[in-house]
C-alpha cells in the first residue's frame, strides 16, 4: 500500500512536470498522420466569384446544425475547407485561425471549418488542438456533398485546402483553392476581407 502510494506520488509529480510540453493545447507531430507530398489540386471548381454561394446545412462538432444562410445579412463567412483531421498542415492552419480570432471578428467575419471527416473524429481532433472558436462542420454524409457542390472534393474523398469568402449578401467574393501541401497566407485572406469594407 505504501509502495503504491509512493508510485502514485511519483507519477503525479512527473505528470505535473510534463504538462507544459504536451497537454496545453498542443498537438505533437507524432500524433499526426503524415500523408507525404500530395497532388496539389485534384478537383474542378463548380462555383465562381460573383455568384450567390450555394446554401448548405451541416452537423457541427459543438452540436446541432449550422447553415450558411443563417449568417446572411449578419456576417461575412470564410469557408475553410481542409483535407482531413490529424494531418500536418491542417493541424496548424486552424490553431493559427484560433490565434487570429480578433482579426476575423474586427472584420465582422466568421470562419466555418469544414472537412469530410465524421463528427467523432473532428471532436477528438479539435479537442487535441485545444478547441477552436469557430464552428467545425462535418461533411461526412452524404460523403463530401457540400465539398462536391462547391467543386472542392478530391478523388480520394477528402476536400481541397480551399478558402471561400462570402459577403453578408451571400455572394462569393474570393476563392482560393490552395496547393494542398501548403498553408495559405493569412495576410492574403485578410486583405480580401478588407476589400469588403
Amino acid at each position: 500500500m505504501r509502495h503504491s502510494s509512493r508510485l502514485l506520488t511519483l507519477a503525479g509529480g512527473l505528470l505535473v512536470l510534463a504538462l507544459p510540453a504536451w497537454l496545453w493545447a498542443a498537438l505533437p507531430r507524432e500524433e499526426i498522420y503524415q500523408p507525404g507530398q500530395l497532388k496539389p489540386v485534384d478537383s474542378q471548381l463548380k462555383v465562381a466569384v460573383g455568384q450567390v454561394a450555394p446554401d448548405f446545412s451541416l452537423p457541427a462538432v459543438s452540436g446541432g446544425r449550422v447553415s450558411l444562410s443563417q449568417y446572411r445579412g449578419k456576417k461575412n463567412v470564410v469557408l475553410s475547407f481542409v483535407p482531413a483531421a490529424w494531418t500536418p498542415v491542417c493541424s496548424e492552419q486552424w490553431p493559427g485561425y484560433n490565434l487570429a480570432r480578433e482579426e476575423f471578428e474586427e472584420r465582422g467575419t466568421i470562419v466555418l471549418g469544414i472537412t469530410t471527416d465524421n463528427l467523432p473524429t473532428l471532436f477528438a481532433w479539435t479537442r487535441a488542438m485545444g478547441g477552436v472558436w469557430f464552428p467545425v462542420l462535418s461533411d461526412f454524409w452524404p460523403h463530401g456533398a457540400v465539398a462536391g457542390q462547391y467543386g472542392v472534393l478530391r478523388g480520394d474523398g477528402t476536400s481541397e485546402r480551399a478558402l471561400l469568402l462570402i459577403d453578408k449578401a451571400g455572394v462569393l467574393r474570393y476563392i482560393a483553392v490552395q496547393d494542398i501541401n501548403i498553408r495559405p497566407d493569412l495576410g492574403v485572406l485578410m486583405g480580401e476581407i478588407d476589400k469588403l469594407r
Partner: peptide, 17 residues
C-alpha cells in the same frame, strides 16, 4: 492501475517532439 499513469508521465517527459 498505476502503470498507465507512470507510462503516460514518462512519455510526457519527452517534452517537445
Amino acid at each position: 492501475k498505476l502503470l498507465p499513469l507512470l507510462l503516460l508521465a514518462i512519455m510526457c517527459l519527452g517534452g517537445a517532439p
